[in-house]
Each structure stands twice: as C-alpha cells, then as structure tokens.
C-alpha cells in the first residue's frame, strides 16, 4: 500500500518574497492579449464569474433580477455563456435556487458569520447547514483571522474541517480575507492550511475589506495550489474576489492561471471571479471586439 499520512507543520510553510512576487506579476501583466485570443479570454472570464450580491439591503426582488441577468447576460448578442454562479447570503439561497431553476448556474452561499466570522463554531455550523439545506451548491466560508494571527493554526484547520463536514456535496470555498493577513507569508500559510483541511477552493477576500484580490495575492495562492497539486495530485480551485472590475484585470488573472497551473484550471470548475460589476465590462469589451467601436455603459443592463 502506498498510503501514508503526511503531517504538515504549518509554521514551516514556504516563505514568500514580496518583491519577487511583484516582479512576477509585472511580467505576467505584460502579456499582450489581442484579437481572437482576447475574445476567447473575455468569454471564458464571463463564464467564471460568481455574480455577487452581499448587501444588508438585498431583497428577493433585487435578487430575482440579478438571477435573470446571470443567465441572460446580453441577449442582444447571441452565443454568450452564462456566469458560473450567483453568490448570496444564506437567507437568499432559496430565492436564488428557484430563480435559477432550469439553468446550470450554481448558487453559492457565504456562511460562517460572513464577513467577519466573529461567531462561535456552533453558529457557523448552523449557518452553513442552513445554506446547504436550502440548496446551496457551494459554500463560501471565512476563516477566523484573529485565531490565525494569534498563531492558532490548528484552530483554523479544525474549523475548516468542521465546516467541510456539514457541506455534504456542496463545494467549499475558504475565504482568507487576505487584506487582514498583512503578509504574503501569511497568505501562503493560510492557503496550505485550507487545502490540507479539505477546501475545494481557496478565495482571497470577502469584498468588504481593501485591499482584496490583488494580483500578488492571487499569484501566491496559485503557487500554493500548484505545490499542493505536486504533493498530493489533488486539484484545488482558486477564487479571487473583490476589486476585479475590469476586463483587463480579469484577463491578467487568467494569464496568471494559465502560466502557473495550466490548462486544467482554465474552467469555471477550478477558477472563479467573485465580482459584481466585472460582467458588464467584459460584455463591453466583447461588443467592442465584435463591432469595432468603443461602448457606452448605457447599452448594458445594470443590476
């Protein structure tokens, strides 16, 4: 039997040199993506969006309209893909699920006392159970950043395991809120903890804190995913969320994925954008490529 348990010491996770990562990002960002290659990327990016509404003032009415948009991004132009998922609070899962019936768009629910995560574990488990029972296909949990920064890595690891257990068939995305982790070393460590604890996806941010999905953070997380794959043969997905609102930024992210992880990750099964306004910019760029003229926001629905 070639079966063994690898014990991971998360205090010895590889270090990251920030300046080196920035240079890597600058180099990746210098890729020039034009013409058919650009259109391909724009459509791919559309299909990777977790169209998100996470506001205190969310209502069923607003959500239903958003769900319609998720499936009908810009019907004036045929042949466009839909987004990957709609991302909502647990109380909205049922509405979203019904609104998206008949599509293959997933419903993702944030949980574990999103966004701060400042609640006891039982509450987080209940929060997650509620979302799963209401039909959520995916769970976006937040880690306890306070415990992490205290060095209580086992707490964070156990918490992720506990949530993973109640997810059942729902795929688990683990949000680090990298803007609160301060260093790239911490981002890397959080990535390792989450992946070894069973995360299906690792995700940068809640979108409530700035900085969110910076390119440097994304590269570090992609490299962590690569190391995990080398070590275990297991794929883990990546979701940058927050702050990616332009087609250019989205394509730069896809370049990062392509050149760090390659072909297998270039699908919405393994890569997502958490974004609310990105879709329209992608659409504008697609229409610009199709028509040859620059677009106005007035021609694309805002939800």
């Amino acid at each position: 039997m070639n079966k063994y348990i690898e014990l991971i010491d998360f205090s010895k996770t590889p270090t990251v040199d920030q300046v080196g990562v920035e240079e890597r990002v600058a180099r990746l960002n210098s890729r020039s993506i034009k013409k058919e290659s650009k259109v391909y990327a724009l459509k791919m990016a559309l299909n990777m969006i977790d169209l998100t509404t996470l506001e205190g003032k969310d209502t069923e009415g607003k959500l239903k309209q958003l769900c319609y948009k998720a499936a009908h991004l810009h019907d004036a132009y045929p042949g466009l893909p839909s987004v990957a998922a709609v991302c909502v609070y647990p109380t909205m899962v049922k509405t979203a699920k019904e609104a998206l019936k008949g599509t293959n768009i997933k419903v993702a629910s944030v949980s574990t006392a999103f966004p701060a995560g400042q609640a006891p574990r039982e509450v987080k488990i209940l929060d997650t159970k509620y979302a799963v029972e209401n039909g959520a296909d995916e769970i976006d949990m937040v880690i306890s950043r306070g415990e992490f920064l205290k060095g209580n890595y086992n707490f964070v690891f156990d918490e992720i395991c506990a949530i993973k257990e109640v997810c059942g068939n729902a795929r688990l995305k683990v949000i680090f809120e990298t803007g609160e982790l301060s260093t790239l070393d911490n981002v890397r460590r959080a990535s390792d903890i989450a992946m070894y604890a069973g995360a299906d996806f690792i995700k940068t941010s809640t979108g409530k804190i700035s900085p969110a999905a910076t390119p440097t953070v994304t590269v570090v997380m992609l490299e962590a995913i690569r190391d995990f794959y080398y070590a275990t043969g297991k794929m883990v997905g990546m979701k940058p969320a927050g702050g990616i609102s332009t087609a250019k930024a989205a394509i730069q992210n896809l370049v990062m994925v392509r050149e760090t992880l390659g072909e297998a990750w270039l699908t919405n099964e393994w890569f997502r954008f958490g974004a609310s306004s990105l879709a329209n910019d992608l659409l504008m760029q697609i229409m610009k490529e199709a028509t040859g003229v620059y677009q106005s926001k007035d021609y694309f629905s805002i939800d």
């Binding site: 040199d17 920030q18 300046v19 080196g20 990562v21 920035e22 990298t178 301060s182 260093t183 790239l184 900085p211 910076t214 440097t216 953070v217």
Partner: peptide
C-alpha cells in the same frame, strides 16, 4: 536585496 514594502506608505501588497 529586496526591500519588502508593506505598511502605511504603500498599503497594498
């Protein structure tokens, strides 16, 4: 040698 740049002067990573 690289100089890490985290902090108030440049708040993003």
């Amino acid at each position: 040698h690289p100089i890490e740049n985290i902090g108030a002067a440049k708040s993003s990573y």
